[in-house]
Design a protein around this nucleic acid. Structure first.
Lengths: 189, 189
DNA sequence: TAGCACATGTAATAAGTTACATGATTTT
DNA sequence: AAAATCATGTAACTTATTACATGTGCTA
């Protein structure tokens, strides 16, 4: 069975479970909806789609709308089963690689103010993200008010918000601590 | 200059800034100290060390302690400079891939109770992690009470704690919401 | 004496991004 | 007419893990 370490195929099965679409559209959907926790490049998507058809998880149909050709993929029963089975398997904890924390960890070796600057930048990133999450939540409620999957989609956004808020608080607490220790450069204050 | 997308070399420079050591010891240190946000495999470490010596960022000395040979690496001035410069460059936001959220996002297609089970498992993972962070904080205070880098090390642990707490709260909130919607299987309740 | 920790390294494989190639249609 | 978007795909390259190969020294 699925010996892969990642879920590229499953992410595509999931998208197809919402309706038939092309590889290009899958990429767009991810950019719009799951980009904060999942995305795939074309270099992953197209070969994966070929394998999925080979394995009977999806079928293709070549459509030419207005002379513009595209391949529309459709989930098979086997694909649906495969998706459902995967949803029942406990998610593997992701390998975390956090460059910010690596820099903080070696902060002792940094120039005065360098780590404080990292923390300030991170705080700003989180604020931006939070605004995007708030907008996403509103957009979802407007555009998909009655969609049966809406509660699940909202859960993923709330996860992002919870994380962003926690990191923001950590940034504030950490900045204060650096300030207390005189580790914030004058230019930054 | 550093055209790499990741910071394998920099993580090793950082460890060497704490004193000369072997590749094996670097791996051990990461396992002990940075594993929650950074780790490297031997397959990355040994080739990177060779390149670092080639680039003049470190020197090697072959030691044979009790007949057991090992290569001890030492930071050069160039290595120290490179580390300091890297610490001043804004950290790149990591690419997030969260399999749990991918499953939640497609939760609509799952069997009854499957997503609640995912959330319960995640909550347990966070609890375990939180305990490890608490232990790490205590151990640091005991073993390195006067180490100048201690405040930075603690900051990275507090980040982990803040995140774990936020995710735990999300798990509780999400489980409740699933329960309210009757999406928790009886066996689990 | 078996097994584990120490110690270094390579090869195979997997996973992923980016750039490139191609070409149509739509918008500015 | 140029630029952006739609659309599919491949090749080159980078990154990373895992398994394997090899050997020493200590401990149960």
């Amino acid at each position: 069975m699925s010996l892969e370490k990642t879920s590229t195929v499953e992410s595509l099965l999931g998208l197809l479970s919402q309706g038939p679409m092309s590889g290009y559209e899958m990429r767009q959907m991810m950019e719009r909806s799951t980009t904060s926790f999942w995305s795939e490049s074309f270099g992953q998507i197209y070969p994966a789609l070929r394998r999925m058809v080979e394995d009977g998880l999806a079928t293709v149909e070549e459509q030419s709308k207005d002379g513009r050709a595209k391949k529309v993929y459709r989930l098979t029963d086997a694909g649906e089963r495969r998706l459902r089975r995967w949803l029942g398997v406990e998610a593997r904890p992701q390998v975390r690689r956090n460059e910010l924390l690596l820099k903080v960890y070696f902060g002792d070796r940094a120039e005065r103010g360098a780590i404080a600057a990292q923390v300030v930048a991170e705080r700003e990133r989180c604020e931006d993200e939070m605004h995007r999450f708030e907008a996403a939540l509103l957009r979802m409620e407007m555009e998909h008010a009655r969609h049966p999957a809406l509660p699940y989609w909202k859960m993923t956004v709330r996860y992002g918000m919870a994380e962003a808020k926690a990191v923001m608080e950590w940034c504030d607490e950490t900045f204060e601590e650096l300030e207390k220790r005189g580790l914030v450069s004058r230019a930054r204050m």
